[in-house]
Design a protein around this nucleic acid. Structure first.
Lengths: 343, 343
DNA sequence: TCGAAAAATTGAAGCGTTTCAATAGAACAA
DNA sequence: TTGTTCTATTGAAACGCTTCAATTTTTCGA
């Protein structure tokens, strides 16, 4: 049925139907207290009758500002980031903002697409957990006048605000815990090292081994991604190798990898966790506790990260003149479960 | 530092700097082949120099259309929906659309906020997994001229397109499997029943018991949410009750609940799965396989649902005159693991 | 009842694009 | 050279809203 789409009613149409001027309709929408109650009534009725929906494009064009924030995360399928997103959304709602979400899936190209989209939409600001090249992305955004806050990654305060978790400390805590369990052949599973988070966790881990003064060693097993699948592949490779070459403990760069490792160890092969190999992850996602072997992990306050980032962004938007860039670093927390400590 | 924010450069500014007219700049942006190559060069240089970013509000206002789609999901923290979102994003990218994501968290109010936001932004269309009252939401959107596709829920084809999975069949499969394992005291854990998905799964489950002609029974244990936490609470309540009252099998309305049940059974209490109580979930999220007891589940093609929904939406947008509403129903699939079948 | 002050309403201007009819310029044949 | 046909460029109009100075209506005290 080739029905010509009828155009959407405009404020003009509403005004005509209600028998008032266009300015009055606008006031009903934005400053109802300036309008006589029965006029409000008439206009409301007309709006209802026509199914009028305010055109945000026009509104924004005129007003210049937008009550929308953009959030770009690395991997929405990772519960860490969905918690972060949830925290961001809630904080935004408090400030009367809405959040629209873009998922970069670790791909620079997708990240760029979302950032451009948000910029063209003139969002009030962007919260981003960047794939890489933080400073370029951020400074170029800033140079064009877009407010940005970096989350889950540290940047220099000359550039902008950032909210992160001390990943070096987290890496250190994880490995110190493994060493305390008497483990000596430690493997760090994760990658690519372009991810600052991964590099930092590795740095902390390496440092912990060095500082311990023990004979313990650490080696890095690289992965292409931080996913369950990548973890499983590494796990299968390890399980398939001679037992003498096995590490006796693995620090996985995140819980997804750790879960993949556990899958490989418990099914395809018969690797005992933690007796043969202890495993500790990072993020403490909700599923860690319910993993096949309850997973020890380094807990990050994901929702808090998201909420704080939004708060700082809103502060920057609201008080451009008094705003000071800040770097907030949260401390992670060790959560010990069965995967590193036999009960 | 009270720096007055410099206004963003407009097409006018670019035109001035490049020494051409505003129309030419617009052409460089939209129809570069209509412009002489060296003019394109001059304009590109000016754009670069000024850091010009096209104002999408103005563009949309004039053009009337938008290359953005809205997606509203029930719970982005649920891996089922993050897969769905990913599928939707990928399909959209193929059609040169972008997806912005809203998370309703099962709350009507949040859903309404996102739907209004998207409508005001004049997105090309909306894909929604509705909290409830499907038809009202959808028909009212449609009546105002917004294209909508419903996902993970069935609607009448007089209203619009929908992509769903046969939840009744899924519920039936789950319970038939439990019965085949010799289980007779079955509990269905899930709620609220306002969620059509939950109601359908329960209906299928009940039907399977009835049809079997066996002496098996099924009772419904209601939950307020479909989360890990809600599952754990139910699990603790069951484990804390006299063993004689335990069900011998539980069909959980989704995997999150099932994971929570497993947590409660394995830690707080000593319930053996599947010997004492078998557990089967729904969705087959990535973590099901790595759960403390590998979780049997009913698999849904989440990414495919999202992708198909977007494709139908894009079809409706692109071919308003020839488009026919369709209801697509995918069949779910039983995945058997250790939580229902001792190895 | 009248006039002044307050409250309510009006409508034109302008936000930054796209579009398109009009104009200018280039290329070529006669 | 002149006319003809392309190709390239121009700039005014319009999209739907908010804003705000100007105007009209209402309220209220005397």
């Amino acid at each position: 049925m080739p029905t010509a789409k009828k155009p959407r009613p405009s404020i003009q149409d509403v005004a005509r139907l209600a028998g008032v001027s266009l300015g009055t309709v606008s006031n009903v929408l934005n400053n109802p207290d300036r309008v006589k109650p029965d006029t409000v009534g008439k206009v409301a009725k007309a709006i209802d009758q026509l199914g009028f929906v305010r055109n945000d494009a026009a509104r924004q064009l005129k007003a210049g500002r937008s009550k929308t924030l953009g959030l770009v995360v690395l991997d929405i399928a990772n519960p860490f980031f969905s918690s972060l997103a949830r925290g961001a959304e809630d904080a935004a709602a408090d400030g009367n903002y809405s959040v629209i979400l873009g998922n970069s899936s670790d791909e620079v190209e997708r990240e760029t697409r979302y950032v451009s989209l948000f910029e063209e939409q003139r969002v009030g600001g962007i919260v981003i957990s960047p794939v890489d090249g933080v400073s370029e992305t951020v400074t170029s955004l800033r140079s064009r006048g877009t407010n940005v806050v970096v989350v889950d990654r540290h940047i220099d305060s000359s550039i902008g605000c950032s909210i992160s978790v001390d990943d070096v400390a987290g890496g250190r805590m994880a490995v110190e815990h493994l060493l305390a369990q008497g483990k000596t052949k430690i493997a760090f599973v994760g990658g690519p090292l372009d991810f600052q988070q991964v590099a930092d966790r590795l740095a902390g881990a390496t440092d912990a081994v060095k500082v311990s003064g023990s004979k313990a060693t650490i080696k890095h097993i690289k992965t292409k991604a931080l996913s369950v699948l990548a973890g499983r592949q590494v796990g299968e490779a390890i399980a398939g190798s001679p037992k003498s070459q096995w590490p006796d403990a693995i620090f996985a760069a995140n819980d997804l990898l750790a879960v993949g490792l556990l899958q490989a160890f418990m099914f395809g092969a018969q690797v005992s966790v933690p007796a043969d190999i202890a495993v500790i992850g990072y993020d403490d996602i909700a599923f860690a506790e319910a993993a096949i072997v309850p997973l020890s992990s380094i807990r990050q306050p994901a929702a808090l990260l998201g909420a704080t980032a939004v708060e700082m962004l809103v502060d920057e938007i609201s008080n451009p003149s008094t705003h000071k860039h800040r770097q907030i670093t949260f401390q992670p927390e060790l959560v010990v479960r069965g995967s590193t400590q036999a009960s």
